[in-house]
Design a protein around this nucleic acid. Structure first.
Lengths: 110, 110
DNA sequence: TCTAATATATAAGAATCCTATATGTAAGGG
DNA sequence: CCCTTACATATAGGATTCTTATATATTAGA
């Protein structure tokens, strides 16, 4: 599993990316992150819930209480147009970070 | 410039990588990070100095006061064998993170 | 009935970055 | 000679985002 120190900020990218595919609730988001990364990236729900509130306040996502077929209440989140616009620059920023780190670590071999 | 939120933990990787090439002092480390990444990655010295102390306490690096040809005193850091051993797993962890994020963001297009 | 899985929520703490501030030397221009 | 810029280290206080621990409540299955 990837350590807490280096994965900061990845939860935001992960949530926005996953919500692009369709609406999801918090508990399911945590599972999808873990599964789609083969367990490499994992977040506790105590980290996800406060983040979902922040993102909702920023209007990147919109939450609504829904009742599933099982009768369970859960808060379902959808990506807003604002959130959609934030995703591309965020992805670019991460790619830029990867490139920067490669220039730093690969140069050491030369 | 890459935001503070997503670059957490990169300073450690950057310092270890740069010290692989040879001993450097704090001020110079900050400049090298900025130059080798074309300004994409940048750290204030207030972030670097406390980190250098931590890394020295962990015996990853070793600092010694030296006087340059100009007569300026500065603390010169060298990578220890312990630090050398830490670099490879750290690099692997970052590569794992990149892979995990790609699986998350690329899957959304499918 | 007990346990596991589902589902959300909050409090307290750790870690790493930031801005702002402080100190001091050396070099160069006016 | 003074002022500014570059060099060089140091610390205080604050922001953010992750952690563990705890709480609550429903549903399904043994």
């Amino acid at each position: 599993m990837i350590g807490a120190g280096i994965k900061r900020g990845t939860a935001e990218l992960a949530v926005l990316s996953l919500l692009q595919e369709g609406p999801l609730h918090g508990y399911e988001l945590a599972r999808r992150i873990e599964r789609q990364t083969n367990g490499a990236l994992r977040f506790t729900l105590a980290a996800l819930y406060p983040m979902l509130y922040r993102m909702e306040q920023q209007r990147w996502i919109r939450g609504s209480w829904e009742t599933s077929a099982n009768g369970r209440k859960r808060r379902c989140y959808r990506l807003t147009p604002v959130g959609k616009k934030k995703l591309a620059p965020l992805q670019r920023e991460w790619e830029e970070l990867f490139g920067a780190l490669q220039r730093l670590t690969k140069a050491a071999h030369a």
